[in-house]
Simulated assay, not measured.
Amino acid sequence: MTSGLGAALAEASSPSWARRACVGRDLASFAEVPEAAEALLGLLLDAEDTAVTRQTAEALAWVGTVAAMRLIALAVAEADDDQADWLQTGVHDALVDPGDGLDVAAVCGKLARDPEEAVRRGAADISAWVVGKGF
Results as ranks from 00 to 15, higher is better:
residue 21 A to W: 08
residue 60 L to P: 00
residue 93 D to W: 08
residue 49 D to S: 12
residue 30 F to Q: 07
residue 58 E to I: 01
residue 34 P to W: 03
residue 33 V to A: 08
residue 23 V to T: 09
residue 79 A to D: 06
residue 82 D to N: 09
residue 58 E to H: 07
residue 82 D to W: 08
residue 83 Q to V: 15
residue 21 A to Y: 06
residue 73 A to P: 00
residue 94 A to Q: 10
residue 95 L to Q: 08
residue 90 G to A: 12
residue 87 L to Y: 07
residue 36 A to C: 10
residue 72 I to Q: 01
residue 79 A to K: 04
residue 86 W to D: 11
residue 45 L to S: 13
residue 52 V to G: 07
residue 36 A to I: 12
residue 17 W to H: 14
residue 42 G to K: 07
residue 89 T to C: 07
residue 19 R to F: 02
residue 96 V to C: 09
residue 26 D to F: 01
residue 78 E to K: 15
residue 68 A to E: 00
residue 96 V to W: 05
residue 24 G to M: 11
residue 95 L to K: 01
residue 24 G to K: 11
residue 92 H to V: 13
residue 69 M to Y: 01
residue 94 A to D: 09
residue 12 A to E: 11
residue 37 A to S: 14
residue 16 S to L: 12
residue 65 T to F: 01
residue 69 M to G: 01
residue 17 W to D: 12
residue 80 D to H: 08
residue 48 E to A: 14
residue 54 R to C: 11
residue 53 T to V: 15
residue 88 Q to I: 04
residue 74 L to K: 10
residue 77 A to R: 02
residue 86 W to H: 15
residue 27 L to R: 02
residue 90 G to D: 10
residue 63 V to Q: 05
residue 80 D to M: 08
residue 57 A to L: 05
residue 57 A to W: 02
residue 39 A to W: 00
residue 17 W to Q: 11
residue 45 L to F: 08
residue 32 E to R: 04
residue 46 D to M: 12
residue 95 L to H: 02
residue 61 A to F: 01
residue 25 R to K: 14
residue 28 A to N: 09
residue 39 A to F: 05
residue 60 L to Q: 01
residue 50 T to W: 07
residue 27 L to F: 09
residue 40 L to H: 03
residue 96 V to M: 11
residue 79 A to H: 03
residue 76 V to K: 03
residue 96 V to R: 12
residue 66 V to M: 03
residue 79 A to S: 14
